[in-house]
Design a protein around this nucleic acid. Sequence first.
DNA 1: GAGTAACAAG
DNA 2: CTTGTTACTC
Lengths: 271, 271
Amino acid sequence: MTKISTWNVNSIRTRITHVTDWLQTNPVDVLCLQETKVVDADFPHTPFEEIGYQAEIFGQKAYNGVALISKSPLTNVQAGFTPVLEAAGKSLDEATFFDEQKRVITGVTASGLRVVNLYVPNGSSVGSEKYDYKLRWFRLLKQYMECLLAVKPKPILICGDFNIALEDRDIYKPEGREKHIMSTPVERESLRSILELGFADVFRKFTAESGHYSWWDYRAASFNRNMGWRIDHHYLTPELYERATSCTIDKAPRGLEKPSDHTPVTVEISD
Amino acid sequence: MTKISTWNVNSIRTRITHVTDWLQTNPVDVLCLQETKVVDADFPHTPFEEIGYQAEIFGQKAYNGVALISKSPLTNVQAGFTPVLEAAGKSLDEATFFDEQKRVITGVTASGLRVVNLYVPNGSSVGSEKYDYKLRWFRLLKQYMECLLAVKPKPILICGDFNIALEDRDIYKPEGREKHIMSTPVERESLRSILELGFADVFRKFTAESGHYSWWDYRAASFNRNMGWRIDHHYLTPELYERATSCTIDKAPRGLEKPSDHTPVTVEISD
DNA sequence: GAGTAACAAG
DNA sequence: CTTGTTACTC
């Protein structure tokens, strides 16, 4: 069995004890972190090593940043769009530009499963320059995923903070969602164009109803009122999707003191 | 018996639990705070009221700020230089200017003792504009004290963060002190000119040796190495000085998590 | 509402 | 080293 989690920690340095405590009671094969908000030189490797994990990291100052935390070493680790597109012989202009922001890292487990960890741009507000950046970023992501699908291993899991709620049941209050960042038809279509390559939302294999979220705004006591969004996802290629035995959201860390605004989402895949 | 303490808390909002915890194990008649760093509208009155204290405050945004915390209400509370100098018919030009920084508050206890709580300017570095400000501030303080000495009640206690170590035994390493802020001959003479009005350092009534300090720089682990300065003082008029039965520095709060860089100094005065 | 940065002050 | 402010981002 392989267990993989995704968690936007909103600063790994501020959240380090939350994360290591959680890992000790929730051991996983790979924990995908987003918004580490730290340059690689300052990443807190020691606390992870002390509990038997190692980190593959791709960080920057103050913003963004992703990491793969794993018990066993990962192979074929590639940070950013560039190395993957380069290996496929693609033009690197866009990749170089978008890799200024550290949002993508991938690696392969010993069990031969490729994990792609994403921190999708938030997009700020509909029609803004950042919104446009988000849509352009998705077009590059599609190329990136096409490159990965063309090589081995074929079982691929994409996870992370997508900053998109794909369906209305993923939002506490879907009214007005067409004009709200993270749920516009255009954003959803951007994400669907990735999924059409052959990925499915494994959370919905097990849970159909609304009311299950992975992110709650810090403001307006939205966690206590369960005014959340499901924007942290695991998307699996068909074979993995079939093998998945559970996908669960652990709300507990969101209730701790000084929590991240996101909480971990975990998928279990049988051998 | 009357018990009076002085403590530069370096932000009352950050230190509120340190201060209320300390007051509960160290009940005093008046606690004089410096560097409250908060405007009056945001002063945390409730935590003090919950443990039976009230606060007279004189604060500003981000810098300086003084407060008198007392079990029984104080009378004749006057904030800043201006009201005292005005009552004495003095020119208010200087008072108005220096009261832009909130550094002075006075009140009278039920036992008829006037408490003057001061946060003396730090002075930055010798020869700087702030150094000049400190010396000019002392000239106004002298006028202010002359006004208070001319009215009732006559027993006066001046305390606070003086940002001056009056003698070499008040510094962990007196070498080079002539050129160091807080111990130049000019600063010491400024302070002595106040004391010459009739005040004495009550800590030295009981303790003659060096090694007793009230402030340790946050830098260079100076607290662990006892590299401190005695710059928080209680100066008493002769009658009070005679009645004083102890003057002690409580180092404990300096050892807590996220401490102030200063620690409380307490004087006891018999009835 | 909470994170980081850069600055000022001690 | 620690605090507060402003400005930015999510």
